[in-house]
Every structure is written in structure tokens, then in C-alpha cells.
Amino acid sequence: MAGLEDLYREIILDHYRNPRHRGELECPPAHRSEGFNPLCGDEVVLTFEMDGDVVTDLRVGGYGCSISQASASMMSAAVIGKTIDEIRDLTRAFKAMMSIHEESIGGDGSEALDGAADAAGANDGALRLGDLEALRGVVKFPVRIKCATLGWNALATGLDETAAGE
């Protein structure tokens, strides 16, 4: 059985209590992207600056639960200084870790879910999720996956729009 300690790891609570890169950058020159969870009304507002294809700065605004806020905070620390391609690879690896396969939900869920997360972790090859690994336990609480991916989806949309606009 999944316990709360699987969800609320200390590092997640730390990011929730002391969010990194909190705030908003002036747009323009910064780009802006929003994510919205209609189920709970949570909202994340990302503003980020680009130099070429590198995200040089990013700020997280909005409001939401500990998981959505901590995930966005950890994401900000992970992506600043990286290129769009590197961020897309990281996003793919993170979302693979967050993905659960439908057949895993039915039976004795927890082991299958562990397996899915491990496989996703192994597949990211050279990519290291680092602190983001702490969010792996979210998979055991399927209702909360949308919380964890809220900021990542907003960033992916924002980067796509930026790339398309050039």
C-alpha cells in the first residue's frame, strides 16, 4: 500500500515551503505560458527568457497544491540554462516517469507501478532526473499526476509557441 511518505518526500515539502524562482518576469522580453487544471482550479504561470535556444531565466507564478507547486519549483531549477532540445528530452523523461499503464491500475497496483516507474527511469539513458526523482511516488496516487505535470505541460506549450514564433 502506498503511504503518504511516498508522496510527500522531504525534498518535495522543501520545494513547496521554499519555492525556487518564484515570481514573474516582464513580458516582453520574457515569454509567458499558463497551465490550468480545471478539476481543482490550480494555475501555474510561467515567464521565461531565451537567448538563442537557451532558457536563461524562468519564474513560476500561480497557485496550487504542494505537488503542483513543488514540481514547478523543481522544474525551474532543472531547466534554467538548458537548450530547448535538452528541456524537451527532460520533459519526456519526466512524463515517462509520471506515466502509468492502464493494466497496472487494476490488480495489485503498487508493484506494477514501481516497475513502470523504474522502466521509465532506465529509459532516460544519459538524462538524469536528479531531484525530480523524488516525484516518482506521485504515480502511486493517480489523481495527483495532473498536479505534478501541470508546470511541465505549460512549459512545453510555451516552448512550442516560442519556437513556432521564430
Binding site: 482550479g41 497544491c65 505537488i67
Partner: peptide, 28 residues
């Protein structure tokens, strides 16, 4: 504390409560 976090912790004690906008966003 965000309602989602409250209901998640309460659930571990078997306590079922609702978290969200309760289909009343103008009221929220």
C-alpha cells in the same frame, strides 16, 4: 494548506472529504 493536500492526508486516516471548487466557480 491546499484542499488537495488536506484531503490526501485525511484519506490516509480513512476520512473521505471533498477538495475542489464543488462545481461552483463563480462562488469560489
Amino acid at each position: 494548506v491546499h484542499p488537495h493536500d488536506i484531503s490526501q492526508v485525511l484519506d490516509q486516516s480513512g476520512v473521505c472529504v471533498r477538495a475542489g471548487h464543488h462545481c461552483a466557480k463563480p462562488l469560489m
